[in-house]
Amino acid sequence: MLTKRIIPCLDVKEGRVVKGVQFVSLRDAGDPVELAKFYDEQGADELVFLDISASHEGKETMVDVVRKTAATLAIPFTVGGGIRTLNDMKKMLRAGADKVSVNTSAIERPQLIAEGAAFFGSQCIVVAIDAKWSQEKGTWMVYTHGGRHETELTAVKWAQEATRLGAGEILLTSMDQDGEKSGFNLALTQAVNDAVNVPVIASGGAGNAQHFYDVFTKVDVDAALAASIFHYKETSISEVKSILREKGVTVR
């Protein structure tokens, strides 16, 4: 039986992990490869690197981070942030990333999803969706540019369109829950998970191990992602997994 995946996300800027990481045990907690290794040992099922570098040099450094990670780690990882062309995808996948994730660039040019899927296969193409509840529209709307711009797309419709174009997985972030630590957005996750036939990763709002249990049992989503609670050691991947296991959720 397929197990539920726990995925830590690492924000990387100019080759360094951001979000004040508190790992005294690590030689260099700002080194993405060191932190990736740490999470791997903790039992992470996959990793996501989100490159938030603005400069061209920063983006080139990311390729290096990917290459080093692939040479060290034996678990799959996804790279997102600033992937705008088929060539950007090629660079990351050839450097050893297993999947690339696209967000704003796919909304600006949906054909990018189709091109990526045709060239590398759907399993390499993750579409990341940032969604926020709109009281006026009565549904969740998609935002681009790191949540700064509202689009005309609803999260459910865009998730369906993205999978029709060839996305192999949806990484769904609730902007309403992000940073709140009060749990994943179950209603949003349910709506998107029901609308598509590819695996969905829930993201945004994890504050403790119970929240992972809730999203896996109430929505039956495939995977859940978190960043700060792992970075700030509010819980650990091994703790989340042992609690899930005790409660009967199948994990690796």
Binding site: L2, T3, R5, Q123, G168, E169, N197, V198, P199, A223
Partner: peptide, 18 residues
């Protein structure tokens, strides 16, 4: 098969399986 009698089957089969 993307569905059986009990459940929807998501494709790709992606993740850790014993």
């Amino acid at each position: 098969n993307d569905s059986d009698s009990q459940q929807r089957v998501r494709i790709p089969h992606m993740g850790w399986n014993p």
